[in-house]
Amino acid sequence: MTGEKNLTSLIQKMTPELQLGEYVFTTVKTTDQIERKDIICEFREQEGITLILRREKADNLNLKYEFIASWITLKIHSSLDAIGLTAIFSSELAKHEISCNVIAGYYHDHIFVNTKDGEKTIEVLKNLSQHYIG
């Protein structure tokens, strides 16, 4: 199944969905003590392995973190080579002083924002979607 590439269609149909719970970004040297099912996202960098986990899982594992996030999924299958989607919604969030960390999955884009901004982010994205004309 091919993802959507048309920017207007992507913005108008993105349907942001707030996932339940709190999430954190942490870094480890090895994932040997962490079950794969508990890892939301993993990215290997030269300095260490960045993980996104549920906050309670990180707490149970005594992992350090600084950023507690809400997780928002854009419920449209966006193409990995679509142009402009991240730029449009991240610019709109910046206008509302909302910092975002974006991860593109195969099917959807995922946005992590400070927990205090979760509901506000949904409102901003829905408003963008409803009023975007390209």
Results as ranks from 00 to 15, higher is better:
residue 4 E to Q: 14
residue 5 K to Q: 13
residue 6 N to E: 13
residue 7 L to I: 11
residue 9 S to W: 00
residue 10 L to I: 14
residue 10 L to T: 13
residue 10 L to E: 13
residue 11 I to Q: 01
residue 12 Q to T: 15
residue 13 K to R: 10
residue 17 E to I: 10
residue 17 E to P: 05
residue 21 G to M: 12
residue 24 V to M: 10
residue 26 T to M: 09
residue 26 T to F: 11
residue 30 T to I: 10
residue 35 E to H: 08
residue 36 R to Y: 03
residue 36 R to F: 03
residue 36 R to H: 05
residue 42 E to G: 12
residue 44 R to H: 07
residue 46 Q to I: 03
residue 50 T to L: 09
residue 50 T to F: 06
residue 52 I to L: 05
residue 55 R to E: 14
residue 64 K to D: 13
residue 66 E to G: 12
residue 71 W to K: 09
residue 73 T to Q: 07
residue 73 T to I: 13
residue 79 S to M: 12
residue 79 S to Q: 10
residue 80 L to D: 03
residue 81 D to N: 11
residue 82 A to L: 01
residue 84 G to H: 06
residue 85 L to K: 01
residue 87 A to V: 06
residue 88 I to V: 15
residue 93 L to W: 04
residue 95 K to S: 06
residue 97 E to T: 07
residue 97 E to F: 02
residue 99 S to Y: 09
residue 100 C to E: 12
residue 101 N to L: 13
residue 102 V to Q: 12
residue 103 I to L: 12
residue 106 Y to N: 12
residue 106 Y to T: 11
residue 111 I to Y: 11
residue 112 F to W: 07
residue 113 V to K: 04
residue 116 K to T: 09
residue 117 D to V: 09
residue 117 D to T: 09
residue 122 I to E: 00
residue 127 N to V: 10
residue 128 L to Q: 02
residue 128 L to I: 03
residue 129 S to W: 01
residue 130 Q to N: 11
